[in-house]
Computed example of a mutant assay.
Amino acid sequence: MTVASDSPFQFVGNETWAQGYWRLADWQFSAQQTLSFLKAHLDLGVSIGDHADIYGDYRCEQLFGNALILDPSVRHQFHVVTKCDIQLVSSSNSVSINHYDTSAKHIVSSVERSLERLQIEHIDTLLLHRPDLLMDVDEVIACFTRLRAEGKVGAFGVSNFSASQFELLNHRFDGQLVTNQVELNPLNFDAFENGITDRLQMAAVRPMAWSCLAGGSLFNAQTEQAQRVVGCLRELAIKYETSLEGVAYAWVIRHPSKPLVINGSGKLNRLASAMEQSKISLSREDWYRVWVASKGHGVP
């Protein structure tokens, strides 16, 4: 983890983009193609990769590791983020029902399996993937402390945690969590309105933003809300001489919590285009113009 000298916000300094690998198994890349894709987004300045043990039915980490081992020198340029605690019914697992597990035993075994599949010796940042209502905070903190002391994990964070759930763990962990990965897009204001981004700003912690394009709903508007938002984004795209996608990403990036945007596409040109087209500075009025379109009414 690095901290920018000119910003109070933690986690990978001033970087704005991360590459998500949750669909890697669907891309049908060879190991060499995956390595080439990784090197290409490194050349674009995107050095953060987002993984989870369960992605691709527990296959994506292995596919990525098969590529990384072809050129181990690339590892030193790359920040590995992965997640644990979701237990899925799978041929790769022995559970009988999907559930969450933040026991020390499961976290440790998940880390060891992720290290083996990724074929690395150290996870840069480990996230708890979903809130576990049976989480024993003291047990988790002791486990995190052990994993860091053993050199297996560098930093820790969470994913999809509410403001209070984040605060519970972060407070007891002496403020050491580095991120909360949450959904942020013009169709979903939950993280902006339920205190999550407020709490992250209080802790000087940047969110990682997933589904910034609302799972593709901005390109296939099926609801009245999506249709209103798409219409607004198109108007702003013309005004700012950019793309609808660029405006959507710029809208997320504009928030003062300084979100780290996760790109989910396996097409390098989509990432390069999104990075370039989002280099606009939305005015405050235009940011709220999107808000009004999404809500279907003016501000109170």
Rank of each mutant, 00 (worst) to 15 (best):
Q87E: 12
I97W: 00
Y100C: 13
S103E: 07
L70V: 04
E112R: 13
N98P: 10
Q77P: 06
K83F: 08
S110V: 00
A104E: 14
S92F: 10
Q87Y: 07
R75G: 15
S109Y: 03
N98L: 14
I86K: 12
I69N: 05
Q87L: 09
S92E: 12
L88E: 11
F78N: 06
K105N: 12
V95T: 13
V74N: 06
E112A: 02
I69D: 09
S114E: 07
D101I: 03
C84Q: 07
T102R: 10
K105Q: 15
N98V: 15
V81A: 12
Q77C: 11
A104P: 14
P72S: 13
S90R: 01
V89W: 01
S109D: 01
N98G: 01
D85K: 05
D71M: 04
H106N: 15
Q77T: 09
S109P: 09
A104F: 14
I86S: 10
V81N: 09
D71T: 08
R75T: 11
S73N: 13
S94L: 01
Q77G: 10
I69T: 13
H76E: 09
K83M: 04
V80R: 05
T102D: 15
V81F: 14
A104R: 05
S94I: 03
Q77W: 04
T102Y: 11
H79V: 03
I86L: 14
Y100H: 15
V74F: 03
L70K: 15
L88I: 02
D101V: 00
I69H: 08
H76G: 10
K83E: 06
S109E: 02
I107A: 07
L70T: 06
L68E: 11
H99L: 08
V108A: 07
A104G: 15
L70A: 11
F78S: 06
I69A: 08
N98K: 15
H76C: 05
S91D: 00
H106T: 04
L70P: 01
V80I: 12
R113P: 01
